[in-house]
Write a protein that binds this DNA or RNA. Sequence first.
DNA 1: AGCACGCCGACT
DNA 2: GTCGGCGTGCTC
Length: 806
Amino acid sequence: MAEIAQIIVDVPTMQTNQPYTYQVPEEWQHQIQRGMRVTVPFGNGSRKVQGFVVGLDEQSNYDGELKKIDSLMELTPVLNEELLDLSKWMANETFAFQITCMHTMLPNLLKAKTTKYLKLVDEVNETDFDELFHGLEEIEFIPESMPKETVSRLLKLKKEQKVEITYHVQNRAKPKTAVGISPLMSFEQFEEQRSTLTAQAKAQNKLLSYLQSIIGQTIKLSDARTNSKISNATFTIGEQKGWLKKLPIEVYRTPIELQKNSNREKELTLNTEQADAVSSITDAIDQKQNKTFLLEGVTGSGKTEVYLQSIQNALNHNQTAIMLVPEISLTPQIVSRVEKRFGKDVAVMHSGLSNGEKYDEWRRIERGEAHVVVGARSAIFAPLKNIGLIILDEEHETSYKQDETPRYHAREVAKWRAKYHNAPLVLGSATPSLESRARAQKNVYQQLMLTHRINKRPMPSVSVVDMREELKHHTESNFSTQLLEEVQTRISRGEQTILMLNRRGYSSFIMCRDCGFVLQCPNCDISLTLHMDTHTMKCHYCGHEEPIPDICPNCHSHQIRYYGTGTQKVETELQEKIPEARILRMDVDTTRRKGMHEKILRQFGHHDADILLGTQMIAKGLDYPNVTLVGVLNADTGLGLPDFRASEHTFQLLTQVSGRAGRADKPGQVIIQTYNPDHYAIQLAKHHNFEKFFEIEMQLRHRGNYPPYYYTTQITVSHPEEKMAAKTIFSIGKFLQDGLGQECVILGPTPRSIARVNRRYFYQIVIKYKHSNKLHELLTELMQRSQKLTKNKIQISIDPDPQYFI
DNA sequence: AGCACGCCGACT
DNA sequence: GTCGGCGTGCTC
């Protein structure tokens, strides 16, 4: 009986979002497994695409002629049964194509590249042969990078059947290799060889002894050289004499940090609360209980130690563990701490790795050589088997939600995998998301509390400065008198300061004082931002860039000035006010180059600067004992945003940045500058009172029917013409309204607050609901229909549980 | 996606 | 007349 395979092809469209049936060639009968990558012919001609085997059958229910699988790309599956199931669930949950989900779960190098070749099959005239084929039988065919005329001449030859297009799917997933050596003789034979050597041939004698010690093994040549202190030349002689053979061996492109893991760190002593937390988690691991814990602990309460010891307990049960950390706080500090504890058993996955390194880390996990995975969002897809524990640190972080398709939330994927493995999930945070905290309240999650800072360190004292009052006393400035004085005190005491600029919804722009003209992006409805380092005006949405004008393009006045607050402007002002201060600036501009992020942090850690000035990215995970002052320059720019999570985000940010002050033995101080000193988010952050904040915010959410009382889904439509976008969103609105009736609340349609981005107009609808069965059905239908609309240049995106509403 | 097929305008 | 523009439909 011939074998049949169900294959998801690598063509991300709605129509092809289903398995296609192929014949398994004779020679691979019963060799092919689910989850393998293959190439298959797809469509007319001999076009080839990559695909994933998702099913194997004895017979097909497709009644056309079946094509055959073309080739296998690996000998083992790249997706195991669990991840195959997960991809299906995720596609359904996020309204994405299954193939897109599969690629999201795998390292980039497993995404194949297809190439086309033109092959001569008949005589062509000499001019064509020389000019088009440069005297070759076969050339690569890249129509988009060839002159139009060349392409049409080639296509004409194809029509005349003088050339043929062949397709090739390139497998980019190539392990790196190094030269290895392997002894070719037995111990006795080597002894015989030794007797043929002259007394001076010391090096060769040494080589023989070395080879005798590694019989049956293959050793990397570079390792062999360092271990044996034998030169390369001698190994070459050994090869010539037939003592050893050189052969390529696979090596891992391992990130540097991993290689030096000699001094292992011991477990720290736990306080009572930590010990209780670890034992609750460990009990769940023991009993294979799929339970979710909310580990709520103030900054500095030792959550990481709880994670590490819980992971150790999972390892003790021969199980594996995943620990997710937000990308932004995936600092060398955290990574090295985990590596010092678990050594080579750890694989690290973050955006700083090259594609090759990511692939190799992935393979180490897949082969079971690493049992602990630490990484950012996508590490939740690590191909670990037998997972005993999953941890999400800083579980409230919005970066756990991917903001492009598939719009998955790592927390939801974590829940799914934890359930699959009957394993506990630990969500940790000082300021949990309201969703998680509410579930803990209702005992859906088990709450674990860490209320003490370790070493009995006091919480930093927080003062709120009313910037409205400041304005009455001196000219406009980003710095209050109090903040400046405190900064100066730190410098004189040899202590350090972190200053944070809350950049969300804020930046510097150019305005003409005479006519009020503001320089706008030609593609987007947003003002351009001034960048002093490159001396250009940039659009933060589409990347458009132009020179800074010195006369107003509108009224030709020279009175054109910049307004607003950017980190550069703040830095300049600070340097003027405190000339002796050594300032390090950290923002998108100074950290764009790879490794700059780490470099700046290292400099600050070495006390090469007194002040670290930056945006949100400095709020998280930094731990410098010498920092005793934290200043937030503008606490409330986020509060004014039309987003129901604005207060929550502000509270979280202030709490987090406050935690940076006063570690070790020196007490910390925090200064929050604001125009809304009485706002509850600011007042409660000042008093470190999450519980009260939770209470107030829950009331507001309840009144507004917002999460966690209701679920939300956002639908966005865009089109180059505003009318088309509006028309489409209104018809979608009507479609949903008709289908849903009273069970859901539909907000909108409204234009998005930045209505035009990249020459496209954006309109949106937000749906609030308690029960989603019908909605899910309707949205799936909408997805299917949207394929037709796409051809009209309409783009539709469905975002379940969106994190931002602006 | 990427390819073929088919229908319209503007050139050798 | 034909070449080539793109709108439409299909891929086991």
